[in-house]
């Protein structure tokens, strides 16, 4: 039960990072932290029984791969954004308004 609280805390830390930080690299790191938290939650569910372990492994496999795919494309977009705007600060990128 304690472990579940820590895993949820990890996930919430990642969400906090995504919501409040201004630097794009930090936001991408926040996505990675949240993803790790989710994988941890699934592994903890997997520990409760024999059959659950297989499904939990599969769910965490899926979360990891899709999460890493999204992170890769986010990195590519951030690199181009840095080239265009000269900064990685999200509050500077306000060309679209209204």
């Amino acid at each position: 039960m304690n472990s579940l609280i820590f895993a949820v805390l990890l996930f919430l830390t990642g969400i906090y990072c995504i919501l409040t930080k201004r630097n794009l690299v930090k936001i991408i790191l926040g996505i990675t932290i949240s993803e790790t938290g989710l994988c941890l939650i699934t592994s903890l569910i997997g520990n409760t029984g024999g059959d659950n372990k297989k499904i939990a492994e599969m769910i965490s496999f899926v979360i990891l791969l899709t999460g890493s795919a999204v992170t890769l494309i986010a990195i590519a977009i951030s690199v181009r954004l840095y080239e265009k705007y000269g900064t990685l600060d999200v509050s500077e990128m306000k060309k679209l308004k209204g």
Binding site: V25, L72, Y82, L88, D89
Partner: peptide, 29 residues
């Protein structure tokens, strides 16, 4: 998990060091 996440972190670090990005950040929204 270890392999995937470490490779992503490595990519992030390499790309941003190569581009010469200034690394200080301050404040939150």
């Amino acid at each position: 998990q270890l392999a995937v996440e470490l490779s992503i972190l490595f990519t992030v670090a390499r790309i941003f060091i190569n581009k010469g990005v200034k690394f200080i950040e301050s404040g939150g929204l």
